[in-house]
């Protein structure tokens, strides 16, 4: 089963790193195939950046995302550019605070940035919170795999903070699933 995940936000949020971590979880720790790609402009900060991961049990030939079934959107500009056209069959995770619009597909509005800011006091890990919510709501990779991949990928000395952020994301994701079911 081929999954195409598209991440978007503004430069500096760690949109590319999120995709790298997800791809690593799938390819290295879950034993699947994964390809990670990105589109970026000249800005190192700001702008609408996009990255993508394809996860498949079969070898991945065509490496580009054409019809994502999962969206992770972390800015309003990113939503307009990369999220607004999501088909009804897709599922979207969006940052509850930074994205004002809502899509026509199923979605989870995750307070990733505000929770990172208020609970963890580090807004920089909002993308990791979002990754946790993504895994909890979609099961696209295992929780064990994403934990290992986060630890592989983050700078030394920040492992605890990032793990905390990830688990906070798991909780937020599960809560959102429960709300949806209710």
């Amino acid at each position: 089963m081929r999954h195409e995940v598209r991440f978007s936000g503004f430069g500096g949020q760690g949109i590319i790193l999120s995709a790298v971590i997800l791809g690593r979880a799938a390819a290295i720790h879950d034993g699947k195939n994964a390809v990670q790609t990105q589109v970026y402009g000249p800005e190192a900060r700001g702008g609408a950046s996009m990255s993508a991961v394809i996860i498949d049990d079969e070898p991945i030939l065509y490496p580009e995302v054409t019809s994502p079934d999962v969206y992770v959107i972390m800015s309003q500009e990113g939503f307009l550019k990369y999220g607004a056209g999501a088909p009804e069959s897709a599922v979207m995770l969006l940052d509850a605070e930074l994205v004002q619009d809502r899509p026509s597909c199923r979605y989870h509005a995750v307070p990733a940035t505000s929770e990172a800011k208020n609970t963890l006091k580090k807004v920089i890990v909002a993308n990791i919170v979002m990754l946790g919510a993504l895994v909890a709501t979609t099961g696209i990779v295992s929780e064990a795999a994403i934990e290992k991949a986060v630890l592989d990928s983050v700078p030394k000395g920040t492992e605890d903070l990032n793990l905390q952020a990830l688990r906070l994301g798991f909780d937020l994701g599960r809560r959102s699933m429960k709300d949806e079911a209710a």
Binding site: G23, A27, I28, A34, V35, Q36, T37, P63, E64
Partner: peptide, 9 residues
């Protein structure tokens, strides 16, 4: 750029 920047196992 596609092959240079993409990540695979």
């Amino acid at each position: 750029e596609i092959i240079g920047h993409m990540r695979e196992r």
